[in-house]
Amino acid sequence: MALLVVYALLCLFGWISLYFFLCVVNGSRGGEWNCRLVTLLHGILAVCITGYIGYVDGPWPFTYPGTKNTPLQISAMVLSLSYFIFDMGWCVYFRTEGPVMLAHHTVSILGILLTLWLGESGIESCAVLFGSEITNPLLQARWFLKQTGHYETLLGNVVDVVFVLLFVLMRVFVGGTMLYCELSSPRPRFFIKCGGVAMYALSWVFMVDIVRFTIRKSKAWQKRLKDKHGEERVAVAVNGQEKKTD
């Protein structure tokens, strides 16, 4: 356990060092821009590592929940644990996130700590990391597009659509299936099951915000279409009037 603490502290130092390095070489962009670059890197790393664990290294999380942690699972969890501690500290210090995101980070930190302490259910934790982080690059892409003035474009619309579809698929349907397998299996500990319920409940809290966002986005698209059609009708009427005058 002492070795895990040292590993986690080294990883935390690595995330902090990366952030300050980006602030030095990319200082004109501001702290949040550089923090989101760190977040983007963690999301990509977490998805790649946990995807390999689930689909290649095994075991299959839907069939074998509650099994002993493997060295690769431990490495992935410590890497993400150190990142969540870094990001939690950054968000609290700069007060950039609301209670829901802070609750998500808190549950993630406690869940990973519990899994590492028990020495089991690492495959479920890695599956949850995969499902929660797979939409993270898209979320960061939306923010970067907004900051650079490219959000109201076709690329921005594609990112939004893919983000919503992927979130619903992974967090609601796949996450719900994972939770059912977790609760129905006799192997996982009671506290691990409680953590799974908490994470799934938070997913539905996020889902409410996504539904509201989708409704606003749909209304905005409809308004643009109406405005566009109205402009086209005006143009046709003006052209027709000019022809009559000629």
Results as ranks from 00 to 15, higher is better:
V56Y: 04
Q73A: 11
Y151I: 12
T177S: 08
A103Y: 08
G51A: 01
S132T: 15
R187Y: 11
F163I: 09
T50A: 02
G131C: 15
T67D: 05
L18C: 14
N69Q: 09
Y151R: 11
G89P: 04
I192K: 01
L40D: 00
E232H: 04
Y64V: 05
F21D: 01
V208E: 02
D227V: 06
S132P: 09
P188Q: 01
S28K: 15
T148H: 12
P99N: 01
Q73T: 05
L18T: 11
Y55L: 15
Y200R: 00
R142E: 03
L113E: 02
L139M: 13
P188E: 00
V100M: 10
L183V: 05
I215T: 10
D57Y: 14
R189S: 08
R29A: 06
F20A: 00
F167T: 01
L110H: 09
I215F: 07
F173G: 00
F84M: 13
I74V: 15
C91S: 09
S75H: 13
K146A: 13
V38K: 03
D227I: 04
W15L: 09
V208N: 00
C126H: 03
P186H: 02
E242Y: 04
S203G: 15
V159C: 04
G176I: 07
L154M: 06
E120S: 13
R233Q: 13
E232W: 00
V78R: 06
F21T: 15
L40N: 08
L179P: 03
G196T: 02
W117L: 11
R95P: 01
G111E: 06
D57W: 08
Q147T: 11
K228R: 13
V162R: 02
T135A: 13
G51R: 01
K146C: 12
E152F: 12
V238N: 10
W15M: 03
T70P: 06
I44T: 15
S125R: 07
M77I: 12
L129N: 10
T135L: 06
V38L: 06
I215D: 05
I123S: 05
L155I: 13
R233F: 14
M88V: 03
I210F: 08
F167E: 03
T96C: 00
C48E: 03
W60Q: 06
D160P: 10
Y200M: 02
V172M: 14
L72R: 04
V47P: 12
Y200I: 08
V128F: 07
L12A: 11
D57H: 09
M1Y: 10
Y7R: 06
F213I: 10
V162M: 05
L4I: 04
K228N: 05
A237N: 00
M170E: 09
K146L: 12
N34I: 10
C23F: 02
V197S: 02
K219H: 09
S75M: 12
P61I: 08
V197I: 15
L154S: 11
C194V: 15
L81T: 11
R29E: 08
V205D: 03
G98F: 03
S108Q: 01
T106K: 01
M178V: 01
S203A: 15
Y52K: 07
L18S: 13
V6I: 14
G195L: 12
V162Y: 03
R224S: 10
F206Q: 09
